[in-house]
């Protein structure tokens, strides 16, 4: 058991290290930009003195590493700094208050919640559907069913997210007005209302993720069914059901967990485009707006959140598949 804990511990440490390095990369990348925070805030009204004053105030005069660690330290506590858009707005209006409205964290919090809600709805539909479809396609491989499913999933993987989104809008919102085509979400909505408005973006994500997940499940199961111990089980005259449940499933656990986690990680990327199409008030949309407006603190914060979630999911997959490996669970 000790060695297992050690391996898991190593992976966790490695994951944490990756996160730190990634945060450093993001920090360095942003600091490689021409011009700086002070110029961006002051815009046309930039003068040397005013710039220096602001630099001193936010600590831009300090060396790189000091700034990196203070930024990271603050970010870990949920303080991602002040949004340029908000900051310049308040500066322009001359009402620089410490109300917290302008902080990145205040902007992010509700949107983060919305994005999580969207991802959860999508995952709840996608995971069971794709696992069942993948299993069926593997069991009945090379049949008509398998081929039809193959063509459909390949087509849906190949389509850009916005194509899927508009097709769904066309079918379910415009031609058959079943769901709203814009996801107008605000605080204090009832759960049913919220679900109703989230369903269309969630379905779009589901379609794309299901295709990936189903294909990977199919490949994993086929790989497994080709192993000699499955042939052995069949040669013992065991019923096909029992072969699947007792012999294939325990060994399929690790690859399937891997597939699910990888695809949830994929959801993170997919969310950006889908949120823009449906004007869904999540992090993805905020991120794209920030990219267009060059709102650096927001871009930085969003990147960190996306990368963090991505690393965390991949790490989970890693650890879970180690834990479900009988060779590691029962060392010699």
């Amino acid at each position: 058991m000790g060695s297992l804990l050690r391996i898991v511990g190593q992976r966790l440490a490695l994951g944490f290290l990756t996160l730190v390095v990634v945060s450093f990369v993001i920090f360095v990348a942003v600091n490689a930009m021409p011009g700086d925070f002070a110029q961006a805030i002051l815009g046309q009204g930039y003068t040397e003195e005013a710039g220096d004053a602001i630099r001193k105030e936010v600590g831009l005069d300090k060396p790189y590493f000091v700034r990196y660690f203070s930024w990271l330290g603050a970010a870990l506590q949920g303080d991602f700094g002040t949004s340029f858009a908000q900051a310049s707005f308040t500066a322009y209006a001359g009402t620089g208050t410490g109300s917290g409205l302008g902080t990145v964290a205040a902007q992010l919090a509700p949107r983060f919640e919305n994005t999580m809600f969207l991802a959860t709805v999508a995952a709840t539909i996608a995971v069971p559907v794709s696992l069942v479809l993948g299993l069926l396609a593997a069991l009945y491989r090379n049949t008509i069913f398998d081929r039809v499913v193959n063509i459909f999933t390949l087509s849906s993987i190949s389509s850009p997210e916005f194509f899927m989104a508009y097709i769904l809008i066309l079918l379910l919102a415009v031609l058959n007005p079943l769901l709203p085509s814009l996801s107008n979400i605000f605080d204090g909505m009832s759960f049913a209302d919220r679900l109703n408005r989230t369903l269309l973006p969630a379905l779009t994500l589901t379609l794309i993720v299901t295709a990936h997940m189903m294909r990977m499940t199919r490949a994993a199961i086929i790989n497994l069914l080709a192993s000699p111990y499955i042939e052995m089980a069949r040669l013992k005259g065991i019923s096909p059901m029992r072969v699947i449940v007792v012999h294939a499933l325990p060994n399929a656990l690790a690859p399937i967990i891997n597939v699910v986690a990888l695809n949830l990680a994929y959801l993170i990327t997919g969310v950006v485009v889908v949120e823009v199409v449906f004007v869904y008030p999540g992090i993805g949309q905020l991120f794209v707006d920030a990219v267009k407006n060059r709102d650096i603190p927001v871009v930085q914060a969003c990147c960190l959140i996306f990368a963090g979630a991505y690393i965390l999911l991949n790490l989970t997959a890693d650890v879970m598949s180690i834990l479900s490996n009988p060779r590691l669970r029962h060392p010699k």
Partner: peptide, 14 residues
């Protein structure tokens, strides 16, 4: 370790 679309968007900003 950084999702590619996110990374691309970050670098495009810069």
């Amino acid at each position: 370790a950084i999702p590619s679309l996110i990374f691309a968007l970050l670098l495009m900003t810069i």
